[in-house]
């Protein structure tokens, strides 16, 4: 048993995948035989899936073919209801980037302020505690009414859902910078700005990045739901549109792609977090 844990876990992963795909394939395979002969009128009405006994649930091969098709032509545009998955993803990523970017711009400076001033921290705490647990989608009607633009409303919803973890983590990270590091800065007569950037920011960076990583995860979860509501473009709209088309194959394909993009976003932030983490 000299095989490394990496190899062993990869083999196991592959095995799980194969078993899952096989089970999926068998479960969705058509059952052509059996049953009493159908009334031709009825069969005509129900369409091919009912008459062949084949489920509307696609098998892994269908999904694979669909995925391949999407990947080959990700950016086609045949009008509002038929765009390539790449374009839809692009819209979603752009919205997340905009909402998340705005949240970073607000949450990190405000978190600094809260972390450095116990007074501000206590003053804002009730607001944060009440607003934080609100589902971001509950803001949607309010956003639609005040902003009057569905695209901007989606961005607002992303903003409001990503702001809290970043705010809370930044405040916590800044407030728990070790006193001795601050004392070092004080005895060296380091000014407040230089202290913020050379002592507090690097010391709090790992905690801030943790908050940012949680936020990007939430933002990516919420964008799908938000786009289902606002419609028009985006991967969330794509999923809803394909459900209306009863194309389960496309829905499954979209789920897969959403997962992949979410993973990439998370890994980017994880890598950034690793870059600013310091061993003690």
């Amino acid at each position: 048993m000299n095989v490394s844990i990496g190899v062993r876990s990869s083999v196991l992963s592959a095995l799980i995948l194969v078993v899952f795909l096989l089970a999926w394939h068998i479960a969705t395979r058509g059952t052509t035989a059996g049953g009493p002969p159908m009334d031709p009128e009825y069969a005509k009405l129900m369409g091919i899936t009912a008459t062949t006994g084949k489920s509307a649930m696609p098998g892994p091969l269908d999904v694979g073919a669909k995925l391949f098709e999407h990947l080959r032509k990700p950016f086609y545009d045949n009008g509002p209801n038929d765009k390539g998955i790449g374009i839809q993803l692009g819209w979603s990523i752009a919205r997340v980037a905009a909402g998340y970017g705005l949240a970073v711009l607000l949450a990190i400076p405000l978190g600094f302020l809260i972390g450095m001033s116990p007074t501000i921290s206590r003053a804002l705490d009730p607001f944060i505690q009440i607003l934080k647990p609100v589902s971001p989608l509950a803001w949607m009607p309010l956003a639609l009414y005040t902003i009057k633009d569905s695209g901007a409303s989606a961005i607002f919803v992303i903003f409001i859902c990503s702001v809290w973890p970043m705010l809370v983590n930044t405040a916590f990270g800044v407030a728990s910078v070790r006193k001795e590091w601050l004392n070092v800065a004080r005895t060296l007569e380091v000014g407040p700005w230089r202290r913020a950037f050379t002592v507090i920011l690097p010391a709090a960076a790992p905690t801030i990045l943790t908050g940012m990583r949680i936020s990007i995860g939430i933002a990516w979860l919420v964008i799908v739901a938000a786009e289902m509501l606002v419609g028009g473009t985006g991967i969330g709209y794509f999923v809803w549109n394909e459900w209306n088309n009863l194309s389960i194959t496309n829905v499954i394909t979209a789920i897969l792609v959403i997962g992949l993009v979410g993973m990439v976003l998370d890994q980017l932030l994880a890598r950034a977090a690793r870059a600013v983490t310091f061993p003690e």
């Binding site: 001795e180 590091w181 004392n183 070092v184 004080r186 005895t187 060296l188 007569e189 002592v199 690097p202 010391a203 600013v276 310091f278 061993p279 003690e280």
Partner: peptide, 19 residues
């Protein structure tokens, strides 16, 4: 009237900036 560069402190825990 406060900390000064004229008075350097060697702290009990070294207080180095770990990054």
């Amino acid at each position: 009237g406060g900390p000064s560069l004229d008075r350097a402190v060697i702290f009990q825990g070294h207080a180095l900036l770990p990054w």
